[in-house]
C-alpha cells in the first residue's frame, strides 16, 4: 500500500506516465470499492444458482398437477390454511438429481417450458445486474455512445467476472452482429465430475444449466437497449483447446449471440 502511494507521487513529476497512473489509480479505487461491498460465500451463491434448474422442473410438475386436479383445490383452501397455521411442513420435492433426470426425460414441450422459465430468471438477473455494474464506478465503463462491440466486451469482462468470478476466455465476432463467447471453464458445471468417457447422455443432462447465462446475456443486452426480439442467443458445447490446463470438466461452452439490428 505505502509503496504504491510513493510510486504515485513520484510519477507526478513525469508527465508521460501521468495518464497511466491515473488509470491505475482509478482501477485501484475500484478495487477498494469492490472490496468494501458486503459479501457472501461463493458456494452459497453457486448452490443457489445451480438449484434453479431442479427448481424450474419442480414448478412445472406442480403446475401440471394442479391443472389435473382442477377445481376441487378451491374447497381445500380452508384446510390448507389450517395446516399452515400449525406449521406442518408441506411434502418435499424429489431430490435435485431426480428432477434433473426428469428434465432430461421430459418431452419437448415440457422441456421447452422449463428452459423458458430458466431463461426468464436469467433475464431478470441480467436486467438488474447491469444497474449494479453501472453504479460500480468502473473507470473502464463509458455507457454513453456505447456500440454493440463494447457492450459485448462489457458482458465478457464485467458481467462474467461479477457472476462467475472469471472473464470469458475468447470473444469472436464478424462485426455484423454475430458473436461467439467462449468459456472453457464455465464455473457452475466445473464441479460436475465428468471424465473423458462422458457420454452424450450426461452432456445432454448438463445442458439446461446453460439456459441461465443465455437469459443473463439477453437480459443485459435488453437493459442496454437491444430488444429481446432482436437478439438470439444459444449455447452449445465446444472442445477445450489442448494447450489449456486439464480441468475436471472436459468441455467448454460457446454462447452464440446474434443481434439483428434494423
Amino acid at each position: 500500500m505505502t509503496s504504491k502511494m510513493a510510486g504515485d507521487t513520484r510519477s507526478h513529476t513525469n508527465p508521460e506516465q501521468d495518464g497511466m497512473t491515473e488509470q491505475q489509480k482509478l482501477q485501484h479505487q475500484l478495487q477498494v470499492f469492490q472490496n468494501s461491498l458486503p459479501k457472501v460465500n461463493q458456494i452459497a451463491f453457486q448452490m443457489l444458482l445451480n438449484e434453479m434448474v431442479p427448481l424450474a422442473v419442480s414448478v412445472e410438475n406442480k403446475l401440471i398437477n394442479s391443472e389435473i386436479k382442477g377445481t376441487p383445490k378451491r374447497n381445500s383452501s380452508e384446510l390448507e390454511e389450517m395446516i399452515t397455521n400449525v406449521h406442518i411442513t408441506a411434502p418435499l420435492d424429489k431430490p435435485s438429481h431426480k428432477l434433473c433426470q426428469q428434465l432430461y426425460e421430459a418431452n419437448d414441450g415440457t422441456r421447452e417450458k422449463i428452459l423458458e422459465r430458466l431463461r426468464s430468471m436469467g433475464n431478470q438477473i441480467g436486467n438488474k445486474l447491469t444497474e449494479l455494474l453501472v453504479f460500480s464506478n468502473n473507470p473502464n465503463l463509458v455507457f454513453k455512445d456505447m456500440d454493440l462491440l463494447s457492450v459485448m466486451k462489457f458482458i465478457c469482462r464485467d458481467v462474467w467476472k461479477q457472476f462467475y468470478g472469471k472473464q470469458i476466455d475468447n470473444l469472436k465476432t464478424n462485426h455484423r452482429g454475430t458473436f461467439y463467447l467462449l468459456d472453457y471453464e464455465y464455473r457452475p458445471i466445473q464441479t460436475f465430475a465428468l471424465d473423458d468417457q462422458s457420454t452424450e447422455e450426461e452432456l445432454a443432462m448438463i445442458k439446461p444449466f446453460f439456459e441461465i447465462p443465455v437469459g443473463l446475456i439477453k437480459g443485459v443486452l435488453s437493459s442496454l437497449g437491444y430488444k429481446e426480439e432482436e437478439v438470439v442467443c444459444m449455447a452449445s458445447y465446444i472442445d477445450r483447446p489442448t494447450d489449456r490446463p486439464k480441468s475436471t470438466f472436459n468441455k467448454g461452452v460457446s454462447f452464440h449471440v446474434q443481434v439483428n439490428m434494423q
Binding site: K39, Q42, F45, L129
Partner: peptide
C-alpha cells in the same frame, strides 16, 4: 471465496419473483 452480496440478493429476488408469477 466471496461474491458480491448484492448479486446474491438480486439472484434470489429473481427466483422469488419468477415463482410468484408461475
Amino acid at each position: 471465496e466471496k461474491v458480491n452480496a448484492e448479486l446474491f440478493t438480486l439472484t434470489y429476488g429473481a427466483i422469488v419473483s419468477q415463482l410468484c408469477t408461475d
